[in-house]
Each structure stands twice: as structure tokens, then as C-alpha cells.
Write a protein that binds this DNA or RNA. Structure first.
Length: 476
DNA sequence: AGCCTTTGACCAGCG
DNA sequence: TCGCTGGTCAAAGGC
């Protein structure tokens, strides 16, 4: 993900999804899109986009991002909390129906014969890790035809966002609104996925060195061991229409791909002046991950990279060098030495609030607000309970809590532990006190919690993954 | 020696 | 059934 570098999110520019089964066009929106969930603060202004024309397609495979970090993500539909819509008698009418039962993602406009309370959507949440800039991407997502989850899935967002009253026209024909959705996914979403309790379990599994479960993929790759026998049968290519991820990358960014690939084919594509190259993961494992690289027709020095499948193994050892122990030690030193509350809430109004992260630390009886710069390093003392993460809940109250704060990229979190109602402002390298650390185990089943990675306690694998997830900003 | 890319042939899907 | 197209194979050669 880190190699996607957004430079042009052109307002009203169109991105088309051309699945064989689904034809959808979503329109991107200006950066100033601001929406909120039920109780989540979203403010997206002047952020620095890091993805470039990044599109995500979902078809047949619920593991949207697993190619990036196999086994380390949840399906996103499980991690977008609390934007439960309240439709009145919604009727879902699939616009595209395929006899292929493998197709699980179908554009499904929601119609309603009465009113429909449009749920608002969390569009931007600064990453829970303080040093992470805002990654933004435009995502084209097809909705689930079922859509019956308690929590609406991210796959439902295009419908819920773009939904309109569907009314018959003069000819009494039902006009379906163009499925239009402006969904901006940030690293926060990935953090949400990464920090989900069940991901935590996966992390713990990793720490216990349990075998990696090979993810299920909906398309197959013929094993290399097949001989070129005349009677051999190719894997049904029909299923290979699964496109997991497509993004536009510069040549430099492509080089940052941490995985190792072996080119196995090149094809001149009709209508394209550039050949298309096919790569397989060159791991010793029989890995189904592939990528297709083709030079962009429209943008100079840009390549369209399509990732398919999943890596069923860990990332190879990085090409870059860094000393994890040194990193941990430094983090530890910073964490222990910079733990102080530097401001009180009364000063919030006067502070330079650009790129401020507001974390809302809550106890059932008391509220304690902390404000962190997005550049803050959220470090904390060693605590066996925290293992790899600090646990915070993501209940967000209101930005009004911080007065006239004109901050962009506001995020509020809730911790469980603090007893004080005093707001606390943390500057860079602030440390969340012990008292605000909550036991992981006690919140394992709570979908509304996120975790702040505890890098000092991370295994090397997790640390590498975390760094990768955060665009390689911690070490290169 | 091992891993990579290149490249022509092969194959499935589709119209 | 046939031809086109895109995806894949695997031998050959390069590094």
C-alpha cells in the first residue's frame, strides 16, 4: 500500500470499473469531503493524499486487502463500525444478475418506498499510530447483494452514500440512480482492520509461531508441476477474472514492492502500445499471488499494477537494512522519557491545531480528552497486558469538545481507564500513561475498539508488517 | 548453480 | 466451429 502515491484526486473525475459482470462508475470528489458516522468525527481538509488513482475492486473474494498482508487483515466489512443505516422498508434490487454463482458482489441499489435515513460515513480517520500521515484513496466498491450484516459493510457504502429516492419517471419507469459513491479510504481504515480484535488474535497466533493458514482464494493457479501434457487441463480461467487490487504507480514506487516476483509472461494487448507483463510471486512456497504490470496509457512514468491473489507466506526479508533492536531501544527510550502531559484542555483553543489528533479517553463515569499531533509518537511503557497494542475504543463524541479547534484531520478515540475529566494535550513524543492502558483480553469481542501498536513489544514480523502498513516511515 | 527474463507456443473463453 | 484475445507455459538464454 505504501507504494501508492496519490497526487491527483481530481474533483469530478471519473473512475470506471469494468468488471465483466459489473459496470459501475463512481465519481471522485474534492478533498473537502466531510462526513461523519453516527458518532465519529471526520474532517478531511488539506490532507496529503498518498495514493494515486487507486482503485479497489471486489469480486468473488472477501479478502480485500489480504494480498498486501496475508492473514493480517480482516475483511473490511467487519471493521467499519456503527454506521448502521435505518432504512424504511428498503428493497434491494440487483441491477446485475449473473448465473455464475461465484459472483458474490453485485451492484445493488437500495430502493425505498418511503424515506431512507442516509447513514453517514466515516471517510477519514487519521491513523491510530501517531506518525502516520493520512493516506487517502478512492475506492470503487461493489455492494453485497445480501447486505444483511448487522454492521453495514464497506461494500454497502456506495449504495448508502449514493442512494437517492427512486421515483418513477413520467413513463412510470423506475429510474435507478447512478451508483455514485465517494469513498475515501485512509490508512486509518487499514489500521482499523489491522487493529481489529480478531486481527489481534492473529497477531498473537503469529507470536506463538503457529503455522500460517493459507488463505482461501477464489481463483486458482495451475501448479508449476503440471507438465505440458496434451491432456492437461488449464485451470478454469473464468475464475481468474478476480481482480483484487489495481493501482497506478510510478516506476520508483513499483521498486518499493517488498515482495519478490518472477516474470512469467508478456503480452501485447490490443489497443495498447505497451506490453503487459505477468509476474508470479517467486517465493519458495507455492504462492498464488500474482501481479500484472502495464504502462499507463494516459500517464507518463506511471504503471498500472494489478495484484491478484494472496501471499500465503511472510514477506521476504527486506532489501533495506535496519536494526530492529536499535529501533525498539530508541522507541523505548523515547517512550519512557517523554511521558508527560504538556498542556491542559484550557489551552486547546490556542494551540496550533493543524494536524491535530484528538483522542477521547473515556471511562464510563469520566471523560478525559487528549490531543495529539498527528506527528506524535504514541509510545507507552512496557505492559504485559498490552502485548502488541494499546487498546482504545473508538467512541467519538464531538469536536465541539475542543472548542474552536480548527483542526483538520481530527480523530477522537476513547480510552477506558482515565479517571480524570481534564483534557490533556500531548505533543510530539507524548506517552499515553499506564493508567490508560486497557487489557486486551477484556475487550476482545468489542468491534469498536482499535489498537495502537506497541512497537517495542512487537515481534520482528509484526514490526515489519506494521512498518509496511505505514508506508515504511519508521525505517527504510 | 540458481534465479531471472524473454519469447513463441499453447490454451480457455468468448463472440 | 472458428478466429480473436488474453493468460500461461516452459525452453532457452542471460546475469
Amino acid at each position: 500500500m505504501h507504494s501508492c502515491n496519490a497526487t491527483s484526486l481530481t474533483p469530478s473525475s471519473a473512475i470506471s470499473e469494468t468488471s465483466p459482470h459489473i459496470q459501475t462508475t463512481f465519481k471522485t470528489s474534492p478533498h473537502t469531503l466531510t462526513t461523519t458516522t453516527t458518532n465519529k468525527i471526520i474532517s478531511l481538509q488539506n490532507h496529503t493524499p498518498h495514493f494515486d488513482d487507486f482503485t479497489l475492486s471486489y469480486e468473488n473474494n472477501p479478502d480485500l486487502f489480504s494480498m498486501l498482508k496475508s492473514n493480517d487483515f480482516l475483511p473490511l466489512e467487519n471493521v467499519i463500525p456503527n454506521s448502521n443505516p435505518t432504512p424504511t422498508n428498503p428493497i434491494r434490487i440487483p441491477t446485475t444478475i449473473s448465473s455464475n454463482t461465484n459472483i458474490s458482489a453485485i451492484i445493488t441499489p437500495v430502493t425505498t418506498n418511503t424515506t431512507f435515513t442516509t447513514p453517514t460515513l466515516t471517510t477519514t480517520i487519521p491513523t491510530t499510530t501517531s506518525a502516520s500521515p493520512i493516506f487517502t484513496t478512492i475506492v470503487n466498491i461493489n455492494t453485497s447483494i445480501n447486505g444483511t450484516n448487522h454492521y453495514p459493510t464497506i461494500l454497502d457504502f456506495p449504495i448508502f452514500i449514493g442512494q437517492q429516492q427512486i421515483k418513477p419517471n413520467n413513463n412510470n419507469q423506475t429510474i435507478f440512480p447512478e451508483p455514485s459513491a465517494n469513498i475515501e479510504i485512509t490508512t486509518a481504515h487499514f489500521d482499523l482492520a489491522y487493529n481489529h480484535p480478531s486481527v489481534l488474535r492473529e497477531i498473537q497466533r503469529k507470536c506463538n509461531q503457529l503455522p500460517i493458514q493459507v488463505p482461501q482464494t477464489s481463483f486458482g493457479v495451475m501448479p508449476n508441476t503440471l507438465s505440458r501434457h496434451p491432456n492437461r487441463k488449464f485451470w478454469k480461467r473464468k475464475n481468474n477474472n478476480v481482480k483484487i487490487l489495481e493501482c497506478h504507480l510510478s516506476a520508483e514506487k513499483i521498486k518499493e514492492d517488498p515482495w519478490t516476483w518472477r516474470k512469467y509472461g508478456e503480452k501485447i494487448i490490443k489497443g495498447s502500445s505497451h506490453p503487459r507483463s505477468y509476474y508470479k510471486c517467486s517465493s519458495f512456497n507455492v504462492c498464488s499471488a500474482k501481479k500484472i504490470v502495464e504502462k499507463s496509457k494516459t500517464k507518463e512514468n506511471t504503471y498500472v499494477v494489478t495484484y491478484k491473489g494472496h501471499h500465503n507466506h511472510k514477506e521476504p526479508k527486506r532489501k533495506h537494512k535496519f536494526d530492529i533492536d536499535t529501533f525498539r531501544n530508541n522507541s523505548s527510550k523515547e517512550g519512557l522519557s517523554t511521558a508527560k502531559i504538556v498542556e491542559s484542555s484550557s489551552n486547546v483553543r490556542n494551540m496550533d491545531s493543524s494536524n491535530v489528533v484528538i483522542t477521547h479517553f473515556d471511562q464510563t463515569e469520566n471523560i478525559n480528552t487528549q490531543i495529539l499531533s498527528t506527528q506524535s509518537k504514541v509510545l507507552y511503557p512496557k505492559n504485559e497486558l498490552t502485548k502488541n497494542h494499546l487498546l482504545v475504543s473508538q467512541e467519538v463524541v464531538s469536536s465541539s469538545n475542543v472548542g474552536n479547534l480548527s483542526s483538520s484531520n481530527v480523530m477522537m478515540l476513547q480510552f477506558d481507564e482515565p479517571k480524570s475529566s481534564d483534557a490533556q494535550v500531548f505533543t510530539r513524543e507524548s506517552t499515553i500513561p499506564y493508567s490508560q492502558i486497557k487489557s486486551i483480553e477484556s475487550c476482545d469481542d468489542d468491534d469498536h475498539h482499535i489498537l495502537i501498536p506497541n512497537m517495542r513489544a512487537m515481534s520482528e514480523d509484526i514490526l515489519l508488517d506494521f512498518n509496511h502498513l505505514n508506508g515504511g516511515r519508521f525505517f527504510s
